[in-house]
Simulated scan of single mutants.
Amino acid sequence: MVSFRAATGEDAEDVAALHAESWRRHYRGAYADSFLDGDVLADRRAVWSARLTEPAPDGVTLVAEIDSELAGFVHVVLDQDARWGSLVDNLHVYPAHHRHGIGAGLMHRAAGTVLDRGATDAMYLWVLEQNTAAQSFYTAVGGRIAERSYVEPPGDAPGRLNGRPAKLRCVWPDVRDLLSRQR
C-alpha cells in the first residue's frame, strides 16, 4: 500500500540518496562521470538538508512510501515562472517501483498542490532530452513539450556536465487536465 505525505527534515537523507541514485542512472552522458561517481550524493545531501529543514514558503516536497520506506518524491516550486506557472523541480521514483502508479500519484498530488496554492493553474518541468522514458511518462499524464534549452550545471560548476546537454520544457497549461487523467 502506497502512502503519500509532506516531507520533513527527517527525510533529507533518504530523498538525497534517491535523487543521487536517479541522476546516476538517468543523467549519465549528460553529467560528468566524475561528478556522478564522486560527490553527487554529498551535493544532493546539502540541497535536500537545506530544502527540508528550512523549507521555502513556495516549495512543497511530497514523498511516497511503501511500508514506511521511501519509494519516490516530488518537489514543486509554486509560481516559479510568470508564463509557465509552478515548477516540478524534481520527481524521482526508485526503479523497483516504476509502473506501479507512484509517479502518477506524485504528479497528481503536485497538480493538486498547484491548484490549491498556486497563483495560476499552470505547471511545468524540465526533462533531459536523452531521458526518453521520462518524456513518455510525462506525455502519458498530459504534458506536452513546449521548448528546448540547455542544462545548467549543478552547483554552477561547468565541469559537472559533459558538453552542452539539452533539456525539454514539458508543460501543463491547466493542471486540471492532469488531474482528469486518473489511472
Rank of each mutant, 00 (worst) to 15 (best):
V93N: 06
V93R: 03
Y94S: 10
H97W: 14
H97T: 05
H98S: 08
R99M: 05
H100Q: 15
G101E: 01
G103F: 01
G103I: 02
A104T: 15
A104S: 15
G105A: 11
M107S: 09
M107G: 09
H108E: 12
H108F: 03
H108V: 04
H108C: 04
A110S: 13
A110K: 00
A110F: 03
A111F: 01
G112Q: 11
G112Y: 00
T113Q: 11
V114I: 14
V114G: 00
L115N: 00
L115M: 11
D116N: 09
D116M: 02
R117Q: 14
R117W: 00
G118V: 00
G118W: 00
G118M: 00
A119L: 04
A119F: 01
A119I: 02
A119R: 03
A119P: 01
A119G: 15
T120Q: 10
T120H: 02
D121V: 08
A122V: 01
M123L: 14
M123P: 01
M123H: 02
L125D: 01
W126A: 10
W126Q: 10
V127Y: 03
L128T: 06
E129F: 07
E129R: 13
Q130C: 05
Q130W: 03
N131H: 12
T132V: 13
T132L: 10
A133H: 10
A133C: 04
A134N: 07
A134H: 08
A134C: 12
Q135A: 15
Q135E: 15
Q135V: 14
S136L: 12
S136W: 04
S136R: 15
S136C: 09
F137W: 08
F137N: 04
Y138C: 08
Y138W: 13
T139P: 09
T139H: 13
A140Y: 04
A140C: 11
A140G: 14
G142W: 00
G142C: 12
G143H: 01
G143R: 01
R144H: 15
R144M: 09
I145W: 01
I145F: 02
I145N: 04
E147D: 15
E147N: 12
